[in-house]
């Protein structure tokens, strides 16, 4: 079966092939990172505070700052339910003291952003056929990607660095 391909071998075609490859590479990487991420942040493991530990943490925070007392009184910060495991600052800090975790988190961030934004550009490209509009949209997507990557990296690196 012989078929004709528009732009065969052109720069546009090569770039599409590269995006296609990146989607696979980042996709497979994300499986690994997301399993880890889910295990650490959403499952009842030692990476989260138990209800008892969280109560202690809130007590210590309250002693250090009256703001926390107010926040608890206002319901802005709530005690854990029995059996609940809570994400909390000190546990995150404890984990990120290991440089490997910082690297893993940054890789997760970059993989997810790259994969997601390339996917988004692919979807938008399906519905936008006008070349200049498409270019403008791709430009905006890259701007957003860079912005979010910057935000995320700064946040991850800044934890506990003060």
């Amino acid at each position: 079966m012989s078929q004709h391909y528009e732009n065969e071998g052109s720069a546009a075609s090569r770039s599409k092939a590269f995006v296609w490859l990146m989607q696979r590479v980042t996709g497979v990487g994300l499986v690994l990172f997301l399993v880890l991420h889910f295990w650490v942040q959403h499952m009842p493991t030692g990476f989260l505070a138990t209800a008892g530990e969280y109560s202690e943490i809130l007590k210590t925070l309250s002693e250090a700052s009256p703001e926390v007392v107010d926040a608890i009184a206002d319901g802005k910060i709530k005690e854990a339910l029995p059996g609940e495991h809570v994400i909390t600052y000190s546990k995150v800090l404890e984990r990120l003291r290991t440089p490997l975790w910082r690297i893993i988190d940054i890789l997760l961030l970059l993989f997810a952003l790259l994969h997601g934004m390339l996917g988004l550009m692919n979807v938008l490209g399906d519905y936008m056929k006008r070349v200049r509009l498409r270019k403008a949209v791709v430009f905006c997507c890259w701007a957003v990607t860079l912005f979010l990557a910057g935000q995320g990296i700064v946040v991850i690196m800044a934890v506990g660095m003060k």
Partner: peptide, 10 residues
């Protein structure tokens, strides 16, 4: 909000 422990808990 990770920049500020109180903000993060909230």
């Amino acid at each position: 909000s990770l920049g500020n422990p109180l903000a993060f808990e909230a």
